[in-house]
Design a protein around this nucleic acid. Sequence first.
DNA 1: TCTGGGGTCCTAGGACCC
DNA 2: TCTGGGGTCCTAGGACCC
Length: 422
Amino acid sequence: MVALVDVNNFYVSCERVFCPALRGQPVIVLSNNDGCVVSRSDEAKALQIGMGQPVFEIRELIRKNRVHVFSSNYALYGDMSARVMNTLRQFAPSLEVYSVDESFLDFSGMQRFDLAAHALNIRKTVWRWVGVPVCVGVGPTKVLAKVANHIAKKDKAGNGVCLLENNWESDLKTLDISDVWGIGRQYTKLLHLHGIRTAYDLTQANDAWVRKHLSVVGLRIKKELEGEACIHLETDVPNKKNVGTTRTFRHPLSTKNELGEALADFAARCGEKLRKQQSSATMLTAYIQTNHLAAGEQQYSRSFTLTFHTPTNSTLQLVNAAKFALDKIFRAGYRYKRAGVLLGELVHPHAGGQMSLFDNLDHAKHTRLMAALDSVNTRFGRNTVRTAAQSLGGSARLTQQNRLSPGYTTKWKEALRVGGGG
DNA sequence: TCTGGGGTCCTAGGACCC
DNA sequence: TCTGGGGTCCTAGGACCC
């Protein structure tokens, strides 16, 4: 049996840990630039605030209902996520961290035990140790564990736990096909056209038909709904195959200079991500684009990709490459709203990356320099040491975060003070 | 005025090989 | 009239996830 444990309204729940007065109140957390709603408390959902809804559309609603609004505090959520995952590790021999707020737990190999009591205990322990509410769904496959979790979450009067052990057919009959993990908007539309409206309907469809229209991915989902495990747990974290850093700017940028600084910041951030997983990139793509949502504005969007003849993770080389790409694509006279740097064809030392005939001797020097850079920046904060091409304020300067909560668990100066007096 | 960021996997089709 | 068989690699595009 497999469990899917996920935190309810994760970002909102993190904010509530440090501000318990927010319990029972409508709370939302916004995307970068405070642009869209990305997390909502149940009370906010009840006010019809949509996921991904632009904030400017609901200003009045927020004011009238005294909705509490936060910018997203990724440092805080990342730390809270690690606490949740570490707590969950005690409850199963192996675990897959599926996302920032979800984990699959694999119970196989455990002695006979009471699954329902175990699931309840997971929920209670995370609440007591970390302070966030979770739901636990248990089933014979990952897709069914997801289904169980969905049922647990929907049943507001329930205990936050749902077990699908046998005879889950009736549960599938009341589950909308669009609520099945792996069935998105396009597949839902297609399935509706063929009269498939519930998860149960999908299990009744013809294998070959599913294979043809939903590919092997859809067929796996079907089998898993029937109780046959096809998607196995990934217990060790695979290295990323691509990394990127992209941003929408609060205010559009027009000059090559400004864009150059932003791209340099993104390239440097990508370098950090590469070095963290000890890999190097073979390809770099930089892109810039105007605001595609602004009808009536002159649109322009271009990208440029270049290849390193020796894969690199040196910030210096990545920043240079990004500037080179910008030279190729920049056109004056546009208001650029978005830009980004993407790295691809990552190679990992263990995988035996191919070295170039033209490899230069600076390589070892760069590696030592980057190690020094990372250790300074880890200790004293990101961008304490940076290339001259980067911006002075960091790319954060170009985005807006007006309602950022303190780094309660990640910055000494912002730790919560308990008790009064001196 | 104002609209996120970061990923993965699969398939079809074209180019190429012998 | 009629024109083989078997394969690989790469890319763009489409789907999905959180």
